[in-house]
């Protein structure tokens, strides 16, 4: 048996060590070695500043954070995207809307990949200051991936902050008015649902069916797809697990639900994640823990092109969150 420690969870104290098999050992027991394939997605994390401080956030993003991607770093990221021919560019944060250069970034990358996505917490997008940004998003056919964990007010507000449930409903209605989520509009509106506690997500197909029924019936809201994601035991979520006494049970749950058939579809195989200051990672969870791509601190400006297929992917015990049950990627469940 191995050990999962707070250091691995990015908390640094080294206390609270528990016995679980390390992820790399579980992989090798099943005969797997995680290797990169052709990179198809560039995820750009434009900063940790956020108007919310969600309790499941693996990045500890919040109003107190001041890390934000500069326009110079953005230009270096754009140049990198130009060198790579990604299929998808996925913009995330924090709340990416709070980066003053987001509009420029979208304009610059929209010609560089067939699909551009923006991850939004909804409340930052409709804080009354983003009318121009919404026009830009529509104009460039940017798909919106919006956090909406539950149909229940107390669950949403408990995870994301008081009043967020109703603010999110208002934002979704506004997005629908703008054409987002409407059939044949070409404006994709996807909802992301993370569990509101120390448990795994339900079936994505069932969640989508239920969300579609209830959101339309109760609030007249339509959307494109629901993506279910498990909470990674990192950052503020790990802190909450510790304080609520759920850390051991949750980790053991993730480990016991390890599903070998999820390995093939793991996002890290085809993903490049770039941090607000321009460094490269295999995924956003490795970014949260400072686990650099290839184990080397490498800046985007130094990368001649996409990472080579066959290169090893950095793993740690938080990877169990992506291989549990149906498995989870940035596009939701791996197995449907």
């Amino acid at each position: 048996m191995g050990q999962f420690s707070l250091e691995r969870a990015g908390e640094g104290s080294g206390q609270g060590i528990m016995d679980i098999d390390p992820f790399h050992l579980t992989l090798s027991k099943h005969g797997f070695e995680l290797k990169r394939e052709v990179a198809t997605t560039l995820q750009i994390n434009v900063g940790f500043l956020c108007n919310q401080a969600c309790r499941h956030c693996h990045l500890n993003a919040g109003p107190g954070r001041n890390e934000s991607m500069s326009s110079e770093t953005m230009d270096e990221v754009v140049s990198y995207a130009r060198r790579c021919n990604f299929e998808t560019i996925d913009i995330t944060g924090g709340a990416p809307e709070l980066n003053p250069n987001l509009g420029n970034l979208i304009r610059k990358v929209s010609a560089l990949a067939p699909k551009i996505m923006l991850r939004s917490n909804l409340t930052a997008l409709y804080d009354g200051k983003r009318d121009r940004l919404i026009d830009i998003l529509k104009g460039h056919r940017v798909a919106i991936v919006a956090s909406f964990p539950s149909l229940n007010e107390s669950q949403v507000d408990s995870q994301r902050g008081s009043g967020v449930f109703h603010a999110s409903l208002t934002a979704l209605k506004e997005l629908n008015k703008a054409g987002y989520g409407q059939e044949d509009s070409g404006l994709e509106l996807n909802l992301v649902s993370n569990p509101t506690g120390a448990f795994l997500p339900p079936s994505q197909t069932q969640t989508e069916k239920r969300f579609r029924d209830v959101l339309e019936r109760k609030w007249g809201i339509v959307f494109s797809n629901v993506f279910n994601l498990a909470n990674a035991p990192l950052g503020r979520f790990w802190h909450w697990l510790l304080h609520s006494g759920n850390e051991e049970k949750y980790m053991k749950k993730l480990v016991s639900c390890f599903n070998p058939s999820t390995i093939e579809g793991l996002m890290c195989k085809t993903f490049v994640s770039v941090s607000w200051d321009g460094f490269l990672f295999d995924c956003d969870f490795n970014l949260a823990t400072g686990l650099f791509m290839g184990g080397v601190e490498r800046h985007v400006s130094e990368m001649p092109g996409p990472p080579e297929p066959g290169n090893s992917i950095e793993v740690a015990d938080h990877c169990y969150a992506c291989t549990a049950g149906a498995g989870f990627s940035c596009a939701g469940a791996i197995e449907h």
Partner: peptide, 11 residues
């Protein structure tokens, strides 16, 4: 636990 994992809420 099963109810939460299947998408039900406490209400």
């Amino acid at each position: 636990q099963a109810c939460l994992e299947k998408g039900s809420n406490p209400a």
